[in-house]
Design a protein around this nucleic acid. Structure first.
Lengths: 363, 363
DNA sequence: CTGAAAGCGCTTACAG
DNA sequence: CTGAAAGCGCTTACAG
């Protein structure tokens, strides 16, 4: 264990005070241009590494805004896992002096932008904050709200949705393509290669849905599986959906399997199957783990579920932001978390929040 | 953020020095019995929590011995993942002043005990160590070697194998029962319920193998699947194994699927299938991810693999030991990590060490 | 057995 | 823009 270079060492070497070294290295204002350069060079030269532990002790608390959808709506299962992942990583940070400001928002139009603007007015402007963790904005007002944060050099990490027009340090999301491939592979293990498969493809405007569809076809193409795939796009036509399902199922050429790329329609499929007493007639892979889908898997209505790593996204999103702020670790711009195939046999792992104590591979 | 109670606060309240408070709370010698009691009570009363960050700064480095099998032998794939998980968690601990002493051992008889005794003589006795991370001893000499550590109050965490006769704080291992259930469930999705299944059951003396077999039968019993399961126990009769496989496969009543609870025999099955050009004839689930098994999955010889969380065992084993030493967190005595079903579509996650950056659910 | 003091490596508030 | 000093909350070595 040879001596690790400290700020004191650099200060002595350069004939400066440790305060100046600190200001130079931390990018704080109040240090001459050439002095800063000299310090950065010496630090590089000597292989100086910030001691992230020591730096915690005396600094004032970091202030982080965490803003995800609240649990009032359709995405509540998904986001309760995101919140939980965030909270669990937060526990790892006890003693790090971090103040988390939670700002959940409803999913009505403009809710994200309203909440973010509100926090900006009330907190950012007065006390200042250091980091922002939220969903990449999908509408103009939200994007503008986030850009106001980024303009203040506030480190920003997006979950689920990216938005490259904001100066975010990274986006953490599920690897949807692999999710689609997994569905195709699992189905291809179970139904004859010339079988007919209903792919409930979600919304053409939602990239998470498209990527899964893409992955699905990629797999069957690469493996020369001549599935007859029927795609259904009724995500925003809730009323027509059941009729459409009836039509497809009533067709002369029977389907053997159903795959569904999103939670809402998975719930709908489960309901439909039970209503028409079709349990066991099809191989069905649903998306996400929540009350209805978990029940459907447990009772045999579904064969499997794809878990899209919501918990891990919350956990890693928080970790990546904090590693950036505390340890100066620069993440990849996009971090993909792989999805899991859920079986009856390991459903309890996803269902039982008590032991959700985890994490996942990162790409 | 109300003020958190510090040692200084306790010292003032009790009219003692912070040094005494520290000695009392940390269980160090050199403090009177009733003084210690008084301090512990006050700490309890005031809700004192150690600031684990501050405690790192001035203390001398913790010294941890890490001793797993080396990579010279049959278990090298499995243990390279364990080592890697340990190394990756270690990276999270930069700045925590921890000195890791790596003591890999060969798998010949008594290698573990020799190495542990050697380290004990050369390091423990002279410099002292704070923690031990190793495989729970499976023979008498190793058990005695470990007990010598535990007698010195050295915090000990076992991976893979437990041994309750040592005073370990915890054992971290895969949830083998779930692994067995997953195999049964996946096979039952793919072959007719009255199908014949060959279960390569490993060694009757190895609990990891037995638990998987148990889980397998548990699943098919609970779900009333009338599989005809043929068990094969030839783990230590390598020469007879191929003959036995030939016999079973040649039988009039054809088997539909093969499940294998361990890595060595999975490699053997892959070789056998390829040699006899039987690819695609059976559904086959192998164990563990390593060169041969990964190839067999990729080329369609195997349908799936069960990954027994080696990486995560190394990662969490290290974390649990360090959380105990640094944050005073008492773990559950047995921590079970769930296993993954590996598909062609996500094989790269297990195969590509570059991005092995992860973790798993803990029970 | 107990206290008083120094110091871990940073960050900050203050003075100039 | 820069320096000198104090201090974060612990741990340690020394003195008694």
């Amino acid at each position: 264990m040879s001596h690790r270079v400290t700020m004191k060492d650099l200060a002595q070497q350069l004939g400066l005070s440790t305060g100046t070294i600190h200001r130079a290295l931390s990018g704080k204002p109040g240090v001459g241009k050439d002095v800063r350069k000299k310090v950065l060079e010496a630090a590089e030269q000597e292989g100086y590494q910030l001691n992230s532990i020591a730096s915690v002790l005396k600094r004032k608390p970091l202030r982080i805004v965490v803003s995800f959808p609240d649990l009032s709506q359709a995405t509540r299962y998904y986001y309760s896992d995101i919140w939980e992942g965030y909270r669990n990583y937060r526990k790892e940070l006890t003693d790090y002096q971090i103040e988390f400001i939670e700002a959940p928002y409803g999913i009505r139009e403009n809710q994200q932008s309203d909440v973010l603007r509100d926090v900006y007015q009330n907190i950012v402007k007065s006390k200042g904050i250091d980091g922002l963790l939220t969903v990449g904005p999908m509408d103009d007002p939200s994007r503008k709200a986030v850009q106001a944060y980024c303009a203040e050099e506030i480190a920003t990490v997006f979950v689920n949705e990216d938005n490259e027009h904001c100066n975010r340090i990274c986006c953490v999301r599920a690897n949807y393509k692999i999710a689609g491939r997994l569905m195709a592979e699992q189905i291809s293990n179970q139904v004859p290669p010339d079988g007919r498969v209903l792919l409930i493809a979600g919304d053409r405007n939602i990239s998470a849905h498209n990527l899964q569809v893409e992955g699905f076809f990629e797999y069957i193409t690469q493996h020369n599986i001549p599935f007859d795939v029927v795609r259904m796009y009724k995500y925003d036509q809730v009323e027509e959906e059941e009729t459409e399902l009836c039509n497809i199922i009533a067709q002369a050429q029977a389907i053997s399997a159903i795959c569904c790329v999103n939670a809402r329609e998975s719930a709908l499929v489960a309901k439909f199957i039970k209503k028409h007493h079709l349990q066991g007639k099809y191989r069905i892979i649903g998306s996400d783990v929540f009350d209805e889908s978990a029940k459907a898997l447990a009772d045999g209505t579904f064969t499997n579920l794809i878990y899209k790593s919501a918990y891990q996204i919350g956990y890693y999103g928080t970790k990546i932001l904090m590693d950036y702020l505390i340890k100066d670790q620069q993440p990849e711009p996009v971090c993909l978390l792989d999805c899991d195939m859920v079986f009856k046999s390991n459903l309890y792992l996803y269902n039982d929040n008590l032991y959700r104590n985890t994490v996942r591979k990162l790409r």
